[in-house]
């Protein structure tokens, strides 16, 4: 028997895992790998911002810390890729704890918290761009050496399955949290901090737990990125693009819902690709699509695609019952 909420996760994962059986186009796997990396980064955001209600504008800080930790350990110290992955995830969690401690303890909420996260991300971008350890403006290149031990795979479907395994793990972890006491506390903090306190919820600890888990997940996405593209620079790792992707995917897919980030990432990038195939290589056309999708979601489905589906399902079932 499987617990509440796990069935859709398993089905969606199996669906994606089966694509290599019927599709062989490399551009499809390139597309899917990028979407899965974004979905993983966005799941980190969703845990803190969607379920916990602490909106971040700077999740690139965790993405970048993950990417740089993994690549610096490998290039400078020759550490094994999988060990570097573990260290990068730990670094993401630690960074979350530090940022959380500084901002939540000071009582920062809402847009103040969001702006502080943005400031941290920008600070790290500037530092990474200037420091020698991070390769400065030139960035860092991982040595191409495919093989399981190096977490590099020349076959794109194989890398896609790796990314999918990470996404699957993030979905299961998120669902476990949602079903737990910690999940209920997190939602309570989002809905009303004072009421939560009165019911014995340790608001600060709950937020710190959430932000370090969130940082860990998004850092893992940064590692996947660098293992796939074998290159990182400050503009990619700490760039605003991934902060926006991490925030947009849950907003579109369904903020605070377990499958929201994955659905959102696929929808946004799917629409982006379709538009590109019509409009050709007009620069920035996919960004325009993003903007339109966001406006449509905010105007007509503020709880995202999954929220809308749920509402329709509720209406349908209540009509059935009537």
């Amino acid at each position: 028997m499987i617990g509440r909420g796990y069935l859709p996760i398993i089905l969606v994962t199996l669906l994606i895992a089966a694509t290599p059986l019927v599709i062989s186009s490399n551009s499809f796997f390139n597309f899917t790998v990028l979407v899965l990396i974004i979905a993983l980064a966005a799941q980190g955001w969703n845990l803190l911002g969607g379920i916990g209600g602490q909106t971040s504008f700077g999740h690139s800080m965790f993405f970048g810390i993950g990417a740089y930790t993994a690549s610096m350990l490998q290039t400078h110290l020759g550490v094994n890729a999988w060990l570097s992955l573990v260290a990068a995830i730990a670094a993401g969690a630690l960074a979350g704890l530090i940022v959380g401690f500084l901002s939540f303890r000071a009582g920062l909420r809402g847009s103040y918290f969001a702006l502080v996260t943005l400031a941290f991300a920008e600070l790290l971008r500037v530092l990474a761009n200037a420091s020698e350890l991070t390769g400065g403006a030139a960035g860092l290149l991982l040595k191409l050496d495919p093989g399981f031990a190096n977490m590099q795979f020349s076959s794109r479907p194989t890398f896609m399955l790796l990314a999918l395994a990470f996404v699957f793990a993030s979905l299961v972890i998120t669902q476990k949290i949602v079903n737990s006491r910690f999940g209920a506390h997190l939602v309570a903090v989002r809905e009303n901090e004072d009421a939560a306190k009165a019911l014995g919820v340790d608001v600060l600890t709950v937020k710190l737990k959430a932000i370090s888990l969130s940082g860990a997940m998004t850092a893992a996405a940064g590692v996947l990125y660098v293992q796939y593209f074998l290159y990182i620079d400050a503009g990619i790792a700490f760039g605003i693009w991934i902060s926006i992707e991490a925030l947009l995917a849950p907003m579109v897919g369904g903020r605070g819902m377990v499958l929201g980030p994955l659905i959102g990432a696929f929808t946004l990038h799917g629409l982006g690709e379709i538009t590109k195939s019509f409009a050709g290589r007009v620069p920035g056309i996919d960004l325009i699509v993003f903007a339109i999708v966001l406006i449509v979601v905010i105007a007509f489905a503020s709880s995202g695609i999954l929220g809308l589906l749920k509402k329709l399902a509720d209406r349908f079932s209540s009509k059935e019952g009537a």
């Binding site: 309570a188 989002r190 809905e191 009303n192 004072d194 009421a195």
Partner: peptide
């Protein structure tokens, strides 16, 4: 345990 004079429900739940 306290209640609030101005009720504080978790409105989304």
């Amino acid at each position: 345990a306290r209640t609030f004079q101005i009720v504080q429900p978790f409105a989304g739940l």
